[in-house]
Amino acid sequence: MNLSLKIWRQASPDAPGGFKTYEARNVSPEASFLEMLDELNERLNSEGEEPIAFDHDCREGICGMCGVMINGNPHGPQDGTATCQLHMRKFSDGDSITIEPWRATALPVIRDLVVDRTAFDRIIEAGGYISVNTGAAPDANIIAIPKEAAEASMDAASCIGCAACVAACPNSAANLFAAAKISHLSLLPQGQPERWSRVVAMVETMEEYFGSCTNHGECETACPKNISIDFIAMMNRDFIKAQFKNFVRIGQ
């Protein structure tokens, strides 16, 4: 199939960017979206134009490196699919496709379609962990965890940190990302001791970079792992509970 691609090009973080249109010819429907871009890059390279920079790595939808806005859809039109797992059979001959980087103040463009997502790491560093030193752990089966809790925790933990939630959000909020990590840990018995300090620390750090949730639910549909916005509600609940719990705690 033949496609017309309108792609964002930007030479450096400070350079002004702009769209350029490329024709992709004889694209195989079996090719993945990124393979289609690979092919285009090969052609650009041979024609003396610098290839388009885009982040990608595992191409199995798990590393979270890839992610672009495809015709106004984060990760493209297919539900629950990262850009790397999107295949060209989802498009038709003659389509024109607009490809843009994620856009948010906290996700500045580094080059072309590559954005800087390190703000996510800052949120995890603020408290997205259970403080247990290596070697200090008790036997793994010492705590029984209800299967339902373990499964719900796993649902939240499946977040790949791709930032599609931020890209999709009209407010550029990262609540789904933060809530997924907070809920992953707060649903487990191991996560309880730090539960109330964690939620406050992570939410505060999140808000240093990102907007606020106004419950559109766009993040949930954009998420390649279909993480539910129920976790955002759980985070909101924990955040206010934490105000009381922490108040009591410092009195102890």
Binding site: K147, A150, L185
Partner: peptide, 18 residues
């Protein structure tokens, strides 16, 4: 043991054990 203590959500039986 270490991974479980860190909160790695390993699959569990209905009794709650790994």
């Amino acid at each position: 043991d270490q991974a479980t203590a860190q909160g790695v959500p390993f699959a569990r039986e209905y009794g709650g054990l790994l």
